[in-house]
């Protein structure tokens, strides 16, 4: 992504549209970021696993993103079935899947699963994206 977006710096971070990106960051980079004056630090844990959960749980806001398509929903449901005590700082969002599946999961697990607006370009924020993100951050 750094190369494609025109940044050829060998040291981190590289900057795209006024956002600093740290690739393959670990605990040290996170500690450095916390010492900087960033208002928001977004940590992409990728596919969540045991240790990932524990690290994620330290964040102020935790968002689990999944897909509710019939051939992918099982992974999402597995996470739901784990006996983890999750408070309101855990949010759930899905880009794909039917409305029926989404509502069933909401009802069964008594959570809110937000619908992520479809977007062609992750770097372009549309009105729908802003409404979605405002709700996600605002609760």
């Amino acid at each position: 992504m750094a190369g494609f977006c025109g940044s050829f710096k060998k040291t981190m971070p590289y900057r795209i549209l006024e956002v600093d990106y740290y690739a393959q960051a670990g605990a040290k980079e996170l500690a450095d970021c916390l010492n900087e004056s960033y208002r928001y630090i977004i940590v992409d844990y990728g596919e969540i696993t045991g240790q990932g959960f524990a690290d994620c749980a330290r964040c102020d806001l935790k968002v689990i993103v999944g897909s509710l398509s019939e051939w992918q929903a099982e992974a999402f449901l597995e996470i739901m079935r784990k006996d983890e005590k999750r408070d309101k700082s855990w949010k759930y969002a899905a880009a794909f899947g039917s409305e029926e599946t989404r509502k069933e999961i909401e009802k069964k697990y008594r959570i809110s699963v937000r619908r992520i607006p479809y977007t062609k370009d992750a770097f372009a924020i549309t009105h729908a994206d802003m409404v979605f993100l405002k709700e996600l951050l605002g609760d």
């Binding site: 549209l17 006024e18 770097f123 372009a124 924020i125 549309t126 009105h127 802003m130 405002k134």
Partner: peptide, 25 residues
């Protein structure tokens, strides 16, 4: 926030500063 990213404050339409990444109508 309304359709064009505009807020109405005391009735006046006001458009906040958005960065380059924001694409609105």
């Amino acid at each position: 926030m309304g359709r064009y990213g505009i807020y109405r404050i005391h009735g006046l339409p006001m458009l906040p500063f958005y960065g380059d990444a924001v694409k609105l109508e």
